[in-house]
Amino acid sequence: MQRYLLTRVVQSLFLLLGVLIVVFFLVRLTGDPTSLMVAKEAPAEQREAFREAMGFNRPLIVQFLDFGAGILRGDFGDSLHFRQPALELILERLPATFYLATVALLLAIVIAITIGIIGGSNPGSAIDSLGRALGLFGQTIPNFWLALILILIFAVNLGWFPSFGRDTSISVVLPAVALGFGSMGQLVRLTRSAVLEIRNEDYIRTARSKGISQFKIGARHVFRNASLALVSVISIQYSYLLGGSIYIETIFSWPGLGNLLQQAVDGRDFPLVQAIAFFISFFVIALTLLTDVAYALIDPRIRYSS
């Protein structure tokens, strides 16, 4: 187990290095952000002076080495747009994004698993139809569209929730629903088919004949049998939510990383794009690592096969 862990950690570190290299050169390929930052009226000399001051005129490899050395010191460079260390900006925004993604996922899990188990245990019932509908619509309604509709109905017409920002404790509800809707659909489908699959197994029939409630049976056996699949889907969904919150955060003006990425991309804020891409990749890699470890703990066979 320790050996396995060590190998996976080392692998992850190399992965991170690869990400760093790819992101750096990709971002650099887009050209020089001077035109976006210096006023249109500025004379040519000022454009040059600016380029010089920002170090855009140095050879790429020098810029890369500088960047790499910085990271080892925990310095991701300064955001061009905000004139502030990129790391500082990211750390400021990170909690909001984690919070939103976590609430969205928890909401999705709780609703999806409840509906999935009840529906799956009673195929054809109203709840089952709801589950099937959720499963389909979750993957067919664009989340930014849903976000706009949610604002119109629940903020403007009903006045139940704020329309933007993160001012009160209920501010998270609308963005979390919009963000988690797709995941909810996926999880409902997964849970439902897991329940259906084991429904007719002998031990379930036995349990049912003993008078154990449908839901309890479903819950217990689904978790035992489908926990591996669930762990992996949840981890995938979580990293998707972390990286995919860009539309939702923009619409709800949620002070998170997605919002920041949208701006950084818009303004070709190199250091910031790099740093955000790096951080999101870091979390995705860390999540994968954790999932793999969880897998190895749940099912020891996996360790040997990989």
Partner: peptide, 22 residues
């Protein structure tokens, strides 16, 4: 698989923006 994992870990938006820009 190393390369595949690197590409999986990078938010696809970064690729999109870069390709669209170049």
């Amino acid at each position: 698989m190393g390369v595949v994992n690197i590409f999986l870990a990078i938010p696809y938006l970064v690729f999109v923006v870069v390709v669209a820009a170049i």
